[in-house]
């Protein structure tokens, strides 16, 4: 039994167009993370684990408030803590919820060879379907944000689903609901952009964060998870958020020209061989005269 369905926009490793794509209306959903109001409480981390029912991980103390060094296959979102000292000596403690950005132009989906292992819904959610996942981790290679994580036991890759099960049933994602300060917000992409822009304007006008800005990187076609950062010029201060993330050029070459060139070359090779055969036929063996045989 299921409670909801989501229309599909793109499918990984899929030959031909997605059936019925763009034949109905939908709106883009978006998660807004206002880093300027994040208190690093990790409610989102727990809400995610609780909703997904993942088992507990053994962690170790590592001189930080951060739960663990990196995301894990069963840990979809992680607050990254950074003590930052600005050039003028101003100290700040930056906390950023890291997790899948749900790119409009998802590198993972582009890279994925498995039909139906990664699906982009019409509402913008990029979801992994482990039933179809082959465990090749090309998605890891395709992702400019270092998000998908591999489970060695099951040989499947996992990442944030933006709670597609909840969204499909008309609920907000679990992390959004839990967030105590409202640092996380959920709605249509238009509304979230609007909210983010207003917040940035407010930060410019009423606080010392004059370089605040919205992080919605165009290099990946924009994302369905956007940030408001105090300092949009230095996203790298927030635990390695890339300044201008793009689907890696080599991945694009590989999945674009190289693929078609290769396909063409293989086909051409086969055709050329066949043509050759038709034109020249098999090589003849020069039969020696009988007596010459030793």
């Amino acid at each position: 039994m299921s409670n909801g369905t989501l229309e599909i926009k793109a499918i990984s490793g899929h030959a031909g167009p997605v059936a019925g794509r763009d034949t109905s209306r939908d709106y883009d959903v978006c998660k807004l993370i206002d880093v300027t109001t994040c208190i690093g409480c990790k409610a989102c981390e727990v809400a995610c684990l609780e909703w997904n029912g993942y088992p507990f991980r053994e962690t170790v103390f590592d001189n930080t408030y951060q739960t663990m060094p990196d995301l894990a296959w069963n840990y979809y979102n992680l607050i990254r803590f950074n003590e930052h000292v600005a050039e003028d000596g101003t100290f700040s403690w930056l906390m950023r919820k890291d997790g899948c950005m749900h790119c409009a132009d998802p590198g993972c989906l582009l890279a994925c060879p498995a039909d139906g292992a990664i699906v982009q819904y019409a509402n913008g959610i990029v979801d992994f379907n482990q039933d179809n996942c082959i465990g090749c981790q090309y998605c890891v290679t395709g992702c400019p944000f270092n998000i998908p994580k591999f489970n060695h036991e099951t040989k499947k890759v996992h990442k944030c689903t933006l709670c597609s099960d909840r969204v499909g049933a008309g609920l907000e994602p679990a992390c959004i609901k839990a967030c105590p300060t409202g640092c996380l917000h959920f709605g249509s992409k238009d509304d979230m952009k609007d909210l983010a822009d207003k917040r940035v304007k407010q930060l410019h006008e009423h606080t010392s964060h004059k370089s605040a800005g919205v992080y919605d990187p165009p290099g990946v076609g924009g994302t369905h998870v956007i940030y408001v950062l105090h300092d949009i010029d230095h996203p790298q201060y927030y635990g390695g958020l890339p300044k201008d993330p793009r689907v890696p050029l080599l991945v694009r070459i590989w999945k674009g020209p190289l693929k078609w060139l290769g396909n063409f070359a293989i086909a051409a090779g086969v055709i050329a061989a066949a043509t050759h055969f038709v034109r020249y036929g098999p090589k003849k063996v020069e039969e020696p005269k009988k007596e010459e045989v030793v």
Partner: peptide, 9 residues
């Protein structure tokens, strides 16, 4: 080839 191109998946 299957991993290489969806047409041969």
């Amino acid at each position: 080839l299957a991993f290489y191109t969806p047409h041969l998946f």
